[in-house]
């Protein structure tokens, strides 16, 4: 079954078309990357898929649920770790996790269980009592992902999860994302081509709100005749610009 099915999705803001007739599918359990330069429409696409922004036209289905007509069901199926850290800075890591458990109505026992499970999965045990605002960039991202995973989403959107992280923190986070792979469908946006290549089953490249290509990283390299995936990406994006 397809986890996500996008059909001619369009979003216009006055004179600007942020997403223009987008159509593709993401399979269940897949790690799918959405690539593009700034302003390509990646974040807008994610916000529409999470039912946070209404499309101007078109529709998308998350495990068969329409973002237009079943937005509440869509919100239950997915979770997002936004580009910004999206944590409560004055709360400790544990309190941040408990906050999300609380707003989902979890019992005390389930909250304790979830905090234990996710802090182990994301490697947060040693910083559980530290305030989120004082964490390093890498730990903030891990906390952000842990908070997104609390509701046990079927589809997880990671919007530029490694932005601004150093090499080691990024490598650690890649391990975390790899550990999640298979259990949950992941849609990732990133500016780092080596990240997309290392982690993704398939990638979609967007420019000016439109889809340029959607395939595996290897297939895209073959199509463009490039050895490095980054070169393939540049050729695709510049090729359209010509």
């Amino acid at each position: 079954m397809n986890a996500i099915e996008i059909k001619n999705l369009t979003k216009r803001y006055r004179d600007v078309t942020a997403v223009d007739g987008l159509s593709f599918t993401v399979r269940e359990g897949e790690l799918f990357s959405l690539l593009g330069v700034n302003g390509a429409g990646k974040s807008t696409t994610i916000r529409m898929l999470c039912a946070l922004t209404e499309p101007t036209s078109g529709d998308a289905y998350l495990l068969g649920k329409s973002i237009l007509h079943e937005s509440a069901a869509v919100k239950r199926l997915c979770a997002v770790s936004p580009q910004e850290s999206a944590v409560a800075p004055a709360l400790s890591v544990k309190e941040n996790l408990a906050l999300i458990c609380g707003v989902h109505g979890f019992s005390k026992e389930k909250t304790t269980e979830k905090i234990g499970e996710l802090s182990a999965l994301l490697g947060l045990q040693e910083v559980l009592s530290r305030r989120a605002g004082k964490l390093s960039g890498g730990y903030k991202r891990r906390l952000s992902i842990a908070m997104a995973l609390i509701s046990e989403p079927k589809i997880l959107f990671l919007d530029e999860p490694t932005l601004g992280l150093d090499v080691l923190a990024r490598s650690d986070l890649w391990d975390v994302i790899r550990a999640l792979k298979g259990n949950v469908t992941i849609v990732l946006t990133t500016h780092y081509m080596e990240e997309a290549e290392a982690l993704s089953d398939r990638v979609a490249v967007m420019k000016d709100g439109r889809l340029l290509v959607c395939d595996t990283p290897d297939a895209i390299k073959v199509q463009t005749g490039a050895v490095r995936f980054e070169d393939a990406f540049v050729r695709i994006v510049k090729g359209v610009a010509k």
Binding site: L52, K75, V80, S81, A86, V87, P89, I100, V103, H104
Partner: peptide, 17 residues
């Protein structure tokens, strides 16, 4: 304003609140 800018509100909009 800080919750809006840090996207915490965006995250919370996807919860049952």
């Amino acid at each position: 304003a800080k919750d809006r800018e840090s996207a915490l509100l965006e995250r919370l909009y996807t919860t049952p609140l």
